[in-house]
Amino acid sequence: MSDKPLVEMRNIYKRFGGVHACEDVSIDLMAGEVVGLLGHNGAGKSTLMKMLSGAYPADGGEIYVDGERAHIATPRDAQDLGIETIYQTLALADNLDAPANMFLGREIMTPFGTLNDDAMERDARQVIARLNPNFTNITDPVRTMSGGQRQSVAIARAILFNARILIMDEPTAALGPHETAMVADLIKQLKAEGIGIFLISHDLHDVFDLSDRVCVMKNGGVVATRRTSEVTQDDVLGMIIMGKLPEENRGETAPT
């Protein structure tokens, strides 16, 4: 594994009207690494990731992929760099079936220039079977599917195109315990394949279980980024709630 980061976001700014959603945020991600992003609602985690996935353009700052300056203005730009995103809202067109959603914008075509639905269904079935073997009604409209199935479709879409960088915004929010475990296994497997993963989650246990480093955000800024092995859950909670570094925390509470 090279020591050059897969992704580096430097001094990122984003404003919505008068609200500073991200202020001077810097973060990096190595190949085969999981970085957990933590923070309250509105801390800026999703906004930061949406700039990486091309959903919003950044107002300031630079993004480097493989050490090279990347210009990500649209979702297509991010896709071309191998960045795939599982959005918190899942971003599925409810009226279409699973293969149509998974290949949306990147359809497989026949030699005659028409949609090759059968080929898309075949590939979709392969990927979905890897996630959830019980999920076979994939050609029904997504609207009729259960929350877990919809989540599976969103995850399957992200891994279908051999992503190198995966952004997972609350990937297990709609899942039961069984499927959550399956997603955890998947993350470990993808990590072993050398894929870098940003994991946004509210579930501290998940994050501690899966991530190599945690990055805590508060009010649009980064409180700190730490190796997961070097902090406790209480440390992280202190960072999330009070924006205090573990060192300060320990300093204050240290016995006299």
Binding site: S53, G105, R106, L115
Partner: peptide
């Protein structure tokens, strides 16, 4: 045709898919 239906089903998703 597929994009038209995707836009109708979820305009935001269509945009995020790079359409």
């Amino acid at each position: 045709g597929r994009y038209v239906f995707a836009m109708g089903g979820n305009p935001e998703a269509a945009e995020l898919s790079g359409i």
